[in-house]
Design a protein around this nucleic acid. Structure first.
Lengths: 362, 362
DNA sequence: CTGAAAGCGCTAACAG
DNA sequence: CTGTTAGCGCTTTCAG
């Protein structure tokens, strides 16, 4: 029996079996939907021809192609991607997974930069972006996304405590790429900034300005921060300064306990002449807190942040920081993911970190 | 001909027609995929039974159901959502469209709050989130997303200059909801803060502190900012103050020309004793610029921002601002969208704006 | 309670 | 160049 167009059913030869069917999904409620068969019918060609025409097949002559395209456009028709994907046995969607720092949605603007650059890079390839927050102990959603065929691969932003799990997925041949620190035993492709270099540059710069008691603010249980700390330590050692463990202030990115810590340090008359903060948001909070306590930045305490968010150049004093090339980040993440999907050997990318000197450290 | 299981093909009665087929999509490269037929085969039941078991149908006895569930889990099997959707004629995905302010990805942390709350609200309903940036003159992507069956509805964040286009989509019965200002002639459901009230509260508060020359920073071509400006004007008029058009500084949200404007004003000896900024990011930049020019906040110029982003309470002076309940925002957006999809009558939600008094205006 | 059969909307062999 | 045909992997009647 030939396909029955929905709009103009032809003579019915056998009783139609098309029965009730309660729609449980979200789509198509009430809105009439034109589909390929309708277009074909109206254009007086077969569905195959419409399919070919709309996908720009060179088999279809220019004239027919445009005629069908016009018709489709005039009816506001778009090919049903789900059906096409099913047939083509593949999807045109990538999952972007963001690890929630804690329970709250991550609030660091830097994340938005990464997300934006990934969105752009995917968009250029005509691939959709399925965004998912990964909450604690819900790691199975990573597997779900891929195994359910919803996405063709995964871009994981932030690795936190997930390293082992990610390695396990990599072992299974999961198509994915991670934004984060390139850990030595990582089995998955990683794109990240040169955190060790960033930490080194920031610290070296502070040392050059005569600082000796440089504090580090950042959660070193987080691999990226740990590398920044490592760079920090190396710079100190190279300058003949013994790192003081008391000057390591570990807390989660974006945490707001900054104020309490500084106040505590000041109340204890704890001595420090500079702070290297593992994020600009933290650094800006530090400026606020220090200023409130009448500690002048940079004359009494010099400050360097990380990420070069937009606000960094508009606070007072303007914030010295380490810049990460976010635009390239998105591009690299997408490139590597597509390599992984194509079965290419694993590859990782370290993006350069550059020191931006502004007033807070001058 | 019965379904051929992929793993153990039965006796072939007719030459198999299953031919080459080049996979153009992203999924399934190399990784062997178990599917429902395999599970059915292994469990010694039909695919129907597996389908019912996995969807928790009460028709299947508890015992069978768990047995099948275990088997599926042990094989890491997940139902192919695309195929299921095709059959069910619906999707479980919502499109979230973010209007790029300019060419760059929006960088305001407030946006991330909204996005996060939407993500959570969708997650609670088991619905996926397809994120799209809407660039200038690419409005057709809105139609694409829905007509191609990729998403069941649209959450549009920011309306900017899109109002007319959105109205047109609403007229066509497009399932959608918008975060923004509830314009009087809007045909689409809107969720937004009470911008007029927010503007009023901020301004009234400044007036109560003796301010008379209150500047407004914000792009009033943006409907939300326009309403804030309206509230600002009302507060002034109620206090018997004639709004001075020179005190309206219009620019795009998050724009960084703040510094230039303030410097210009100061150089011109332009008088103002307070600023109401349409976003916290702008307000924080203002604090920076004013401080740099040795204008004391709040003693010489009082300041109120908008959004209550995390940094607001950590800068110095801490920033007074208008808070918008972002968590409820996500929930309301999703609720209204589902109503729209279900064909319920259009409804809009205005979330309360509340004044948070901190040091910058005290 | 279970299976067979039909078909969601599309694409791609294959044979004209 | 074009139509016919056969499914993609799943869900849901319908008939046991």
């Amino acid at each position: 029996m030939p396909n029955l167009p929905r709009t103009k059913p032809p003579v019915i030869l056998a009783p139609t079996k098309t029965a009730p069917l309660v729609t449980t999904g979200l789509a198509n409620k009430g809105r009439p939907r034109v589909q390929m068969a309708d277009i074909a019918h109206m254009a007086g060609v077969s569905a195959s021809t419409v399919s070919r025409a709309l996908s720009g097949s060179p088999l279809i002559p220019e004239a027919t192609r445009t005629r069908i395209a016009e018709l489709a456009r005039s009816l506001n028709y778009r090919v049903n991607i789900g059906a096409a994907n099913l047939r083509k046995r593949g999807v045109q969607t990538i999952g972007v997974v963001i690890l929630g720092d804690n329970e709250q949605m991550i609030s660091d603007p830097f994340l938005l930069s990464i997300l934006g650059s990934v969105a752009d890079a995917l968009d250029e390839r005509g691939v959709s972006l399925l965004l998912t927050r990964l909450k604690k102990d819900r790691q199975h959603v990573l597997t779900d996304l891929v195994e359910s065929g919803q996405v063709g691969g995964l871009i994981v932003v932030g690795q936190l405590t997930l390293h082992e799990h990610l390695n396990e997925l990599a072992r299974q041949g999961f198509p994915m790429v991670v934004w984060g620190a390139n850990l030595p035993d990582a089995l998955y492709p990683v794109v990240g900034g040169d955190n060790a270099m960033g930490g080194f540059l920031a610290t070296q710069h502070l040392i050059e300005h005569g600082c000796r008691r440089i504090a580090f603010f950042g959660d070193i249980s987080h691999p990226e921060a740990a590398l920044r700390y490592q760079g920090y330590t190396r710079a100190l050692l190279e300058a003949g300064i013994e790192p003081d463990p008391n000057l390591l202030q570990s807390f989660l990115f974006g945490d707001s306990r900054v104020r309490g810590v500084i106040n505590h340090w000041l109340d204890q008359q704890f001595s420090f002449d500079a702070i290297f903060a593992s994020s600009d948001v933290t650094a800006i909070s530090l400026i606020g807190t220090l200023t409130e306590r009448n500690i002048a930045v940079p004359s009494q305490v010099r400050l360097v942040g990380y990420d070069d968010i937009a606000l960094a150049q508009n606070v007072h004093p303007t914030l010295s920081t380490i810049r990460q090339p976010t635009h390239e980040a998105g591009r690299a993440l997408v490139d590597l993911l597509f390599d992984a999907i194509a079965g290419q050997p694993r590859r990782s990318v370290v993006l350069p970190a550059s020191l931006i000197v502004r007033e807070s450290s001058a």
